[in-house]
Amino acid sequence: MTSHPPPIAAPEAVPGQAGADALSITNLEVHYRGITALRGVSLTVRRGEIFTLIGPNGAGKSSLVNAICGIVPGSGSIRFDGSPLDALPAHRRSRLGVIQVPEGRRVIAPLSVMDNLLLGCEAAGVRGGDFEADLQRVFELFPILAERRNQASGTMSGGQQQMLAIGRALMGNPHVLLLDEPSLGLAPVIVADVFRAVKRLNAQGMTILLVEQNARLALETAHRAAVLEQGRIVRQGMAADLANDPVIADHYFGQAAAT
Rank of each mutant, 00 (worst) to 15 (best):
L201M: 13
R137N: 10
Q204H: 10
D130F: 06
A226T: 05
R148E: 11
G154D: 09
G159D: 09
G125L: 09
V138L: 07
L209C: 04
L170T: 08
N214E: 11
E181I: 13
V126Y: 07
H223N: 13
A218C: 05
V176C: 02
Q162T: 10
A215E: 06
A165P: 04
F195W: 05
L219Y: 03
L209G: 01
E132G: 08
V126W: 11
P174C: 06
V176M: 01
E140Q: 14
A152D: 09
R127P: 02
V198Y: 02
R196E: 14
G159A: 12
Q162L: 13
V191C: 02
Q162A: 11
D130Q: 10
L201Y: 02
A197D: 04
A218D: 04
G205M: 03
R168A: 11
N214M: 14
L170C: 06
D134I: 05
E212G: 05
M171S: 08
P182V: 11
V126R: 14
E181A: 09
A222I: 05
D130L: 07
P182D: 04
Q204S: 15
L209W: 00
F131W: 12
P143W: 12
E132T: 15
G158I: 13
S183A: 14
R148F: 11
R196C: 04
F139M: 12
A152L: 03
P174T: 06
P143A: 12
I208L: 06
A203K: 08
A226N: 02
R224N: 14
M206W: 01
P182F: 06
P188S: 08
T155I: 13
Q161M: 10
A169W: 05
I166V: 14
A218P: 00
V189F: 04
Q161R: 10
L219A: 07
R149H: 14
F142I: 10
G158L: 12
G125V: 12
T155F: 10
L164M: 11
L209E: 00
A215L: 07
L179I: 10
